[in-house]
Nucleic acid binder design. Sequence first.
DNA 1: TTATCAGTTGAGCAATCATTCAACTATAAT
DNA 2: ATTATAGTTGAATGATTGCTCAACTGATAA
Lengths: 117, 117
Amino acid sequence: MQRKTPLCDCEVIHEEVVKRVRKNMPKEAEFCKLADLYKMFADTTRVRILWALSSEEMCVCDIAVLLGMTKSAISHQLRSLRFANLVKYDKRGKEVYYSLADNRVKEIFKKGFEHVR
Amino acid sequence: MQRKTPLCDCEVIHEEVVKRVRKNMPKEAEFCKLADLYKMFADTTRVRILWALSSEEMCVCDIAVLLGMTKSAISHQLRSLRFANLVKYDKRGKEVYYSLADNRVKEIFKKGFEHVR
DNA sequence: TTATCAGTTGAGCAATCATTCAACTATAAT
DNA sequence: ATTATAGTTGAATGATTGCTCAACTGATAA
């Protein structure tokens, strides 16, 4: 994800435009965080997991059955989602129950589905 | 992005949960479209381009200068964004002016930034 | 204690992807 | 016509990523 700061290969054509846009531009770090957030929604498996958890909490096996995938694959993805603070987990006995960290996740979904349809 | 239909490696633990969730589950194609949409936001360069275009229309050179990248790199990304119907372009003389395809893009942004901050 | 099952983890692999580079098109200026 | 500039394109490359596999942890059941 790291990006070096390369030189551009052309002259400014509309200096005022560039200046104006740059003025309000969020910091690189903000864009990184934003991209990292959307990365979590940028994969069919993760998006399906998130959708499933937006209906109710589920354990890893349930999700694996639902999506027809291995526990390992699901667990790996849940790890990323946990890292991104999108899901929380709760170990009860042998099982681990996952649920959405907050309902802002649902809102992001909604916006997306609106656009897609 | 294609995904084969592999077998899961465990028994159902909560059959009712799985059934219930599966019942309202959107089709795979829907999730694919959603993931593809978010993929466009899942990269710092693209997200910065989209943000820039959400302020005003810009030509490729302007964007290249703004982001300190080559025209080629920018052009490649604009191509993806055009393919995803997120930007439109308008050739005027030697320059090509890009702008957002519609303002739903901005709304998606807003949701994202809300979450990140 | 031993066996079993839920879940995690790390290495490895194949696929995807962002950028570079060089060659190209098209428009404008001389 | 020639030259210069804006932009596009395709191949090549290095990095990232999603899944598999096998080994592991830790809790329950026998």
